[in-house]
Amino acid sequence: MKKILAVTGIRSEYFILQPIFEELTKRNDIRLKVVVTGTHLSPLHGNTYKLIENDGYNLIKLETLLSSDLLSGRCKSVGIQLMGLTDIVLREKPDWLMVLGDREESITTATVGTYMNIPVAHICGGDRVVGNIDDSVRHAVTKLAHLHFPTTRENGDRILKMGEEPWRVNVVGNPALDSIRKQENLSYDYINNRLGTNLKEEKPFILLIKHPLSSEIEEAENQMRVTLEAVSELGYSTIITYPNSDAGGYDMIRVIKEFERKYSFIKAFETLPRDIFVNLQRKAALLLGNSSSGILEAPFLKLPVVNVGNRQKQRQHAENIIFVPHEKEKIKESIEKAIFDKDFIELCKNCINPYGDGYSGERIARIIAETEINNELINKQIIY
């Protein structure tokens, strides 16, 4: 019986990890506990630990998020998290640590595992995203982690170029697609009753998810304002989820609340349940903003995406994405193209998804369970 301690700090990350958790709990040779930290314990971001709790997982709470909208606040949160996670690992004595991506919990988990000789399984390494601290963190975690699960062949090749031993690198696809594949279809009536909205099948609506960029935090407020000015002038029903906890997020939320008060067709939520979110992705005319969902999940759903600004630029993507700057008229033109351009809509319907087939969770669970924990695993070699 191997004990796995998985760490998650934000809702989008959990949506990707949950299919892995589900497969791990099916096995009789694995025992899973989940450390919830970061925005999961934040009322401002919807107390999303409750979603994980309702899914039946055994939780350990680690409160680390400072009430700050500054880069220094995020840095201090890393220190708090590192101390707290060290104590948890000392108490729980896991065989494996598991973490995803490129945020605070990624670097703290990888650091704790490396210093305490506990193997770290890293999901979604090898990505390339320009202009954000997440890119540097992700690659740093790769150099600390012991087993890698990139989502695409290109990302796997990038990990190999970093000098990682090939046997450590397992290209598995994006586990979030497992959740989408398994999620039942919900009716418009059901969604409207849950959200208090008035969405209709015959009327296009926009799903908007926009986060601040660490290299552009002074511009975050204006970037959200320009995007919402474009939305408000077009007048389509728009569902917004709040940005993440990065510096600049508070400014964005203030703008969202301002526009929500002013326009009845704009509706914002701190967070959304997974079943609702997946079905909104299925039914939306487009995904607007700069969320990784547009890169990782939208091509699986053949969903048009308008990606505004530099976040997600140069990340591997399918043909369903229009990249535009923070210019109101160009955003409006791109939204209209995504809704009405038949050629582009057909292109989206036939786009090639580079992120897998929706069966990643079982692959990851099996590889972790079957990997022997020994000196070869713990003592990493750099092969370049």
Rank of each mutant, 00 (worst) to 15 (best):
L228R: 10
R27E: 01
I20S: 06
E92F: 07
Q223Y: 00
L228Y: 07
D69F: 11
L287F: 00
T64M: 14
Y384M: 13
E229A: 00
P299F: 02
R138W: 10
D29A: 07
L85F: 06
I367L: 10
G38T: 06
L100Y: 13
I383G: 12
K283C: 04
G356F: 08
V78H: 05
S214V: 04
D343Q: 12
D55M: 14
N244F: 07
A318N: 08
S72I: 14
R282Y: 03
D246T: 09
S291H: 02
S264I: 10
A176G: 15
L147T: 05
L288D: 03
I239P: 02
K3F: 10
D69I: 07
M224L: 13
V172F: 05
I321N: 06
G196C: 07
R366T: 14
S291T: 13
Y14Q: 07
R138I: 10
E53M: 13
I217W: 06
E53A: 14
A121D: 02
S77F: 01
I345E: 11
G73D: 10
T152K: 02
F259P: 03
K262C: 07
G84V: 05
V112A: 07
I240G: 02
H122I: 12
R254K: 15
E202W: 00
T152V: 03
N155F: 14
V305I: 08
I253Y: 10
T25A: 04
L100G: 08
Y263H: 15
G249S: 15
A230C: 03
Q81T: 05
M116A: 01
V35G: 09
K257Y: 06
R282D: 04
P273E: 15
S245G: 08
E218C: 05
K337A: 02
N192S: 04
K337D: 00
I191N: 08
Q381H: 11
Y236N: 00
K332E: 06
R11D: 10
R91P: 01
V324N: 01
H148M: 13
I118T: 12
I52G: 12
R194G: 00
P19H: 06
N290K: 05
V305L: 04
S42K: 01
E201Q: 12
M116Y: 08
L100C: 10
I331P: 01
G249H: 13
I80Y: 12
K267L: 07
N307S: 12
L82C: 06
I339D: 03
L82A: 11
E105C: 08
R261F: 08
V34K: 10
V141Y: 03
Q183S: 15
E218R: 13
T8Y: 04
R363S: 09
V226P: 00
I339A: 02
G196M: 08
F344M: 04
